[in-house]
Each structure stands twice: as structure tokens, then as C-alpha cells.
Amino acid sequence: MIPASFEYHAPKTLDEALRLVERHGDEAKLLAGGHSLLPLMKLRLAAPRYVIDIGHLRGMSYIREENGQIAIGALTTHSEIEHSELLAAKCPLLPQTAAQIGDVQVRNRGTIGGSLAHADPGGDYPAAILALDAEIIAANTSGTRTIPARDFFVDMLTTQLHPGEILTQIRIAPRPPQSGTAYEKLHQPASGFAIVGVAANVLLGNGRKAIERAAIGITGLAAKAFRAEAVERALNGKTISDKVIEDASRNAAQGVEPLSDLHASGEYRREMARVFTRRAIARAIEAARGVSRGGV
């Protein structure tokens, strides 16, 4: 399998990259780690005229605290996120999610920016990004804008990013005390993509007996990842019990048209969304209790 020919650009600075994507519009594709784009190009499902390789840009791979937020550079690899001590302490959902992406080699190479911009319906990060209410920073030649995660995913393989924009950074508010997170995934046995992946982020209240606020991101189930608002509504303000969690999880696929393919029918996906939502919520609560007991 061999990609079709293309014109290659390896800009040295972000500005240069932005000028290139502006000039070539939707005839250009950005190449970061390459693990979303290159398989498509090798299959010749994608044959962009211009490939703009931003993988050599310096200073776009970092995980750091900035103005009370955690900022992650778009070129940060899955494995850097998986093993980040900062994230393990302040946003463990992301390392947990990253650890479940593909395999070691893919994680060593794939980037969070590339993965989010590709918006594969079976991608793992979108669930976590949604559950964390992250912000996505996009730049073009005239400046940057901030896109809330909730608005970022538009449809299958389609995001809010305009032609001419480059995703540069992901920003996340640090985890408040008494909160807990978990990512639970049913993987497709051949490719490792999520058939259903559920990220839960819960904030406990009332002496850790109730859920003050829950954020649930679901990937794999539908054409795009989404926030399971019906589940969240059913949890918010409720005293924790198995029944509350179970009942809330029943709403996981509410209002969503599930995908259906060789590996899982829509019906099965819908049911698995329920099961994995329940598991993710339960584990997030456990984490919230465990962590607050630990006195962090």
C-alpha cells in the first residue's frame, strides 16, 4: 500500500504553517503523528494535493500549567499524556484514556491534536475531552479562537475547525477536590477503536454521598462523540446509589442514532453504552471517594 503523490511542506514555524494552510485550503492536509491520515492515504481513500507536516514544529509538544489551567500542546503524543505525572495528579482521566488508545507504538507516535482534529467516531479522546469540558484552541493567520469541547465535534470526521485553521492547544481546568473520573471502553477486537467508550467526570457533594455535578462524554456510539446530557441530568444532585446510577445510565443513548457496523449493531451499541456508562460512573465515584480520602 502506497500513498498517491503529493506536494510536501515542512514548515519551521507555526506562522509558516498557518500561511500554508490558508493558501491551500481544503486541498491541504495537516500531518502530525500521521496515525490518522497516513492509513487513509495508503489506502488511497485520501489523496490530498498538499501535505503540510507540522510534526517538526518545535514547542507544540508540552503539558504544563498556565493561568490555573492545564495546557497541552497539540503535538503531545498519547504516550506523553499516558505517562505525564502532572496529568496523573491533576487530570487523571486523560492518562487513563490515552493508555487505552491503540497500542504502544501508536501511542508513541499519535498526537492528541491530530486525533481530535480527525474526529474518528471510534476515537477515545473525544469522550474525555467532552467530560472534562476542555477548551480547544485553534489558530489561523489572524489569531486564535477558543472552541468549547461541546461545540467541537460536528459530525463524523468533522469538527468546528475551518479550513486554514490549526488546532494548537487543549486546555483543561484542573480537577476540583472531591471529584473523580474514569474511562471505560469496549474495544473493537481487530483495530482497538472504541465500539463504545464512556468518560465520566463526577463532582461529589454532601459529604461525598451525593453527586453534585456529572459530565459524561460518550464516543463510538454515534457518528460523533457527545455529552450524555440526559444521564447527567439524572445524576446531578442525587444521593448516590446503585439504582440512581443504573437508572441514569439507561439514558446513555437517548436522542442518539447509534452507528451500526460489522462489529456491533446499533442495538448492541446502545446497550453497551448503558453498561459502560454505569461502569464509568461507578468507577469515577470510587475514584472521587478514594482520592478525597487520600487527602489530596
Partner: peptide, 16 residues
Amino acid sequence: LIASVGQRMLDAAARK
């Protein structure tokens, strides 16, 4: 090609 590798996206793409 699209049948054998795009399978998981086809339904949704057609609907779209």
C-alpha cells in the same frame, strides 16, 4: 475499496 475498509463509516456516511 470503500466496501472493504470504509465499512464502519458507510451507514453513517449514507445517512449524512
